[in-house]
Design a binder for these strands. Sequence first.
RNA 1: GCCGGGGUGGCGGAAUGGUAGACGCGGUGGUCUCAAACACCAUUGGGGUUAAACCCGUGCGGGUUCGAGUCCCGCCCCCGGCACCA
Length: 887
Amino acid sequence: MADRYDPAGFEAQWRKRWKDADLFKTRSNPDAPKFYGADFFPYPSGAGLSVGHCRNYVPTDVICRMKLMQGFNVLHPMGFDAFGLPAENEAIKKKTHPEPMIKQYAATYRRQMELVGVSYDWSRSFSSSDKTFYQWTQWIFELLFKRGLAYRSMAAVNWDPIDKTVLADEEIIGGRAERSGALVEKKYIPQWFFKITEYAQRLLDDLDDLDWPEGIKSQQRNWIGRSEGVQFTMQLASSATKALHANEDPEFVVKNLQNRLAFEVFTTRVDTVFGMTFCVLAPEHALLEKILKTVDEEHAENVRAYQLRAKTLSDIDRLATNREKTGVFTGAYAINPVNGEQVPIWVADYVLATYGTGAIMAVPGHDERDFEFAKKFGIDIIQVIAPSDGSEVVLPYVAKDGILVSSGEYTGKPVFAAQSELGIWMEGLGIGERKIQYRLRDWLISRQRYWGCPIPIIHTKDGEMQPVPLDCLPVELPMVDDYEPSGDGTSPLAHIPEFVNTTDLDGRLGQRETDTMGGFACSSWYFLRFCDPANDKEPWSFDAAKYWMPVDCYVGGAEHAVMHLLYARFWTKVLYDAGLVTVKEPFARLENQGQVLALTPYRRPREDENLEVGEDGVVVSFADIANYNEEDIFHRWTRMSKSKGNVVTPEDAVESYGADALRMYLLFVAPFNADVQWSNDGMQGQVRFLSKIFKLIDEAKPMYFAEWRNFIGFEEADDVSKDIRRRTHKTIKKATADIDRFAFNTYVSSLMIYVNDLTDLVAKHKANPSRAFALSLSEAIETLILLLSPAAPHSADELWHDIGKSDFTVDVSWPVFVPALAVDDTVTVAVQVNGKLRETLEMEADATNEAVEAAAKALPKVAAHLEGKTIRKVIVVPRKLVNFVAS
RNA sequence: GCCGGGGUGGCGGAAUGGUAGACGCGGUGGUCUCAAACACCAUUGGGGUUAAACCCGUGCGGGUUCGAGUCCCGCCCCCGGCACCA
């Protein structure tokens, strides 16, 4: 073996051997447990992979390789999220078609993934744009349609005037399109939705049992946004009857106003209902039309003008933070059902048409927003909740800790009691009900774009919608030259007569739906297809999904915390309800990797320059730095991206340092979920470590005895051999547990410690090794190589081969921890006086507490600190610590 | 503002309530070399000392405990998400 570590000399060779042996083909040993490890479905961008992407794939690979060695049947697949806007936009830009383009990009991704030695089973790979895949995406769409979970509805959508497409709410950041940066406009067109709201409660409840990061679960909970409250009816009082009922019994009033105009309000604070001094309708509220007919012209005019303004205001203006409240009085009044009081009805855009009922009761005494509004327009503000301790408060008092005041017969009741009693009272009267409201909206799936999965629906002459018969699927995306957005808001497919014109189930002329599905549809079930990717009869066989699901470990970026994961959970639940899968949740465990940041040079902007959003300087290329004054250049850690020119590719890294060094570096540099700062020095450190291992094994090889396992039990162990075995088994325990808990940095560090220790021991004993030493060293060498194998598989196989083995390390059993061999003979005991460390003490591991205490007390330093003091108490933690409490 | 995650040497980071700073990077000194790079050895939280002893140290202020980076209370700062959700 070369004494210099030379990855270029062996890494490629091993990759070829793995491929020739079809080493990573999914195995199905009937007696073995299964492990399904998956990475998020990547879009294969034209820029190719950076080392940043490897930060996702390498750790998943490590845990999958370990599971493989532990005897699991491992499903470790990779495929490509090929449909969607990014691909389409790039193809347009490059004046090519997305189909061949994406194929080529995917091939590059695959080549790069193979270059770093990731153990995917490529025989199971597919792209979401493959007919054999999207046929089943359509199949599932129809399943949803038939179950009443897919519907079409006229809806205000977010129109991106640059991409000329409709955006989901989630694709908009601060009123601008996430991708194009365009100011988003509103547009009304018919849209397809999935009824995810029907699953809101289950999506919320089932989060509890998932082994996911708390932050992600919490984001999903917020997104679903459950709130409990009361929805009740507000009757309108005409201005003529305004004074009429002022002092009458509320129940009488309510009963006698049944035929009037009315609207519903939802509140989570029904306990504050006696504090209502006005109510507010959203400008889009349907009832306004009717209300305006009952009021004088001046008020009606004002309201109409306000409605118009609200409509033309872009979302960015309307939702701008800290914006002053606006609104107008309608001239009409509504009746507070609990006390018969009449309150003015206002229109204001701080009430959202899309949440709750689009109308609220306003209690300025106990709600910040209502308070602000009342203050501005001079509306009464009254207090109906007071702190339990009787203290004075400044309104608005929004805390729920308190009792009701000035609230009729409810005065004196605690907030929580009043909430439930008022709810029950209203239910009894039939004017309201206790209700649960969700913030979650239905999932908008339509895209008016070409490059997506066609929605398999036929519109008949009578306006009926029929699902395309299952045996006619897939509805193929036609291969056309011109697929650019039509710019009129319809899909490019709408302009292809051969596609649109078809016959319906009854043989009459019909038209195909021309919208395509957003990419989230594909990524909501691809993990099921991996279970049975070649199936041409059904999307997956029940048994295959039953065997492999759920994904045991799902790894990807936290940026998909809400959308992808929520949608995939939703589809899984629907499929569960349909009896097609046996799991209610697709991903048992989720891990989010951190990003890889690169140090990027910037220059200070010139005075007249406009900066990119969120930037405080202009990116300069590394080559250009020399052209600027030193004081005008500064560096930032930013995400690697092509536009910043700071990308390090796997090719770069592998060429300079080797694939294993790259893998080791990514694992070691920081905890898995933390962002890391790319460093060539860090890479060099891993090269150093790997070459240390090669050197160690080269040194130890003369003492290596392949049959150690058959003899080690019969040889009397000396202190050194016991020591080696102790270190070996402690390292097995630590490495195994660390990989399982995604603590890859400490896994690598435990190997470093192990290598350092072994190197010292070998140097010390190689001149005169005992037989016991050689045997335990042989165990150590094999263990080291095997423990290294998931992280640095090329090196491990090279070393394994070098000590005379002919199999691949992934085919060898993972080392087994033997607790008895890891037990310490002697331990270091910390000796404290009054909690301060004064000395340490070597003791036999089985020394009694008394012996330890006596030995500790006898230590000169300890004795000095105890001098002249009385020992009040002695705390002995066996094998760890003695603490003398003295004064 | 609300929700979530964090704040530990020059840097990345270790640490079931029990020896803070494992492991690595960088630095310093040395060996090798004509020289450099690589590599190797030693050293490396701050103060203090010839060397020790000793003192100070995990964002800040309190508390619980024999003992707190770790638990509790109150703040400050950073990162991510949501943002008029009634």
